[in-house]
C-alpha cells in the first residue's frame, strides 16, 4: 500500500521534478562556467562572474526563484491534479485514512522537492569547495543561509498544497495560504542571510511552521466536501 501510493504520487510529479532538474542544471552550469553560452540565455550580469559562491553570485537568486516555483507547482499539481481528473472520490474511498493518503502525498512531494533541489546545491557547493575553481574564499558554513532557504521552500510547497486542497474562491481565502507561506519563506530567507553562518537554528522554526501547515492540511482534507 505504501509502495503503491508512493509510486503513484512519484509517477504523477516526476515530470515537474524533471523540468525542475533541467532548469537547475542550466543555472548550475551557468554559475560554474561563466563563459557558458547559457549565461547569455539567462541574461546574467557580466560582473557576477567574479563573484563569491553562495555570497554574491549568479546562482543563489535564481535557485531561490526556481525552487519556490517548483515548490508551488508541486503543491498545486498534487491537489489540483486530483480535482481536475475527478479522482478524489476514487482515491479517498481506498481503505486507508484520509490523513494517511494526504500524508503520503505530502511525504512524496516533500522528498521530491528536497532531493531535486539539493542536487544543484551540492554540485555547486562541491565545485565551490574544490580549490582552483574560483578566486575567493569558501567555507561550507557559507552555504548555511542557502540550505535554510532550501528547507524554507517546504513552507511554500505546503502552502501551495493547502491552497490546492482548500475549498473556496481563488481570489481570497483560497489564495491566502500560498501568499502567506511565500511571505514566511521570504522572511526566513532574509533572516538566514542576515544571520549568515550559524543560521541553521532557523530550521526549527521552519519545521514548526511545516507541522502547523500539515495539521491544517489534514484537518481541511478530512472536513471538506469532495463534490
Amino acid at each position: 500500500m505504501f509502495r503503491a501510493m508512493a509510486l503513484k504520487e512519484f509517477r504523477e510529479i516526476r515530470g515537474v521534478a524533471l523540468a525542475a532538474m533541467i532548469i537547475y542544471g542550466i543555472i548550475t552550469i551557468a554559475a560554474i562556467d561563466y563563459r557558458s553560452p547559457l549565461n547569455l540565455f539567462l541574461y546574467l550580469p557580466i560582473n557576477w562572474r567574479e563573484g563569491i559562491p553562495f555570497v554574491y553570485d549568479s546562482f543563489v537568486g535564481k535557485f531561490y526563484f526556481f525552487a519556490a516555483l517548483m515548490a508551488i507547482i508541486l503543491g498545486l499539481w498534487q491537489t489540483f491534479g486530483e480535482s481536475v481528473r475527478g479522482t478524489y472520490p476514487f482515491l479517498l474511498h481506498r481503505p486507508a485514512s484520509t490523513s494517511w493518503l494526504m500524508g503520503m502525498k505530502l511525504l512524496v512531494g516533500t522528498v521530491v522537492y528536497l532531493v531535486a533541489s539539493a542536487i544543484p546545491l551540492l554540485i555547486y557547493g562541491i565545485w565551490a569547495a574544490t580549490p582552483g575553481n574560483h578566486a575567493s574564499p569558501f567555507e561550507w558554513s557559507m552555504t548555511e543561509p542557502v540550505w535554510v532557504s532550501w528547507s524554507a521552500m517546504t513552507i511554500v510547497y505546503l502552502g501551495a498544497f493547502l491552497t490546492g486542497i482548500m475549498p473556496g474562491r481563488w481570489y481570497h481565502a483560497r489564495f491566502l495560504p500560498l501568499a502567506a507561506s511565500i511571505l514566511v519563506m521570504v522572511g526566513v530567507a532574509v533572516l538566514a542571510n542576515y544571520v549568515f553562518a550559524g543560521a541553521l537554528w532557523l530550521c526549527w522554526i521552519i519545521l514548526a511552521v511545516d507541522i502547523w501547515i500539515i495539521i491544517l492540511i489534514v484537518f481541511i482534507a478530512k472536513s471538506r466536501d469532495y463534490t
Binding site: 475527478g86 479522482t87 472520490p89 481503505p95 486507508a96
Partner: peptide, 20 residues
C-alpha cells in the same frame, strides 16, 4: 474505518480512474 471501507465498493459518477 479503513477495514469497513474495504467492505464497501464505490463506483463514482463518470468512473474516475487515473488515465496515465
Amino acid at each position: 474505518r479503513p477495514e469497513t471501507r474495504a467492505r464497501i465498493a464505490y463506483l463514482a459518477e463518470g468512473h474516475p480512474l487515473y488515465g496515465w
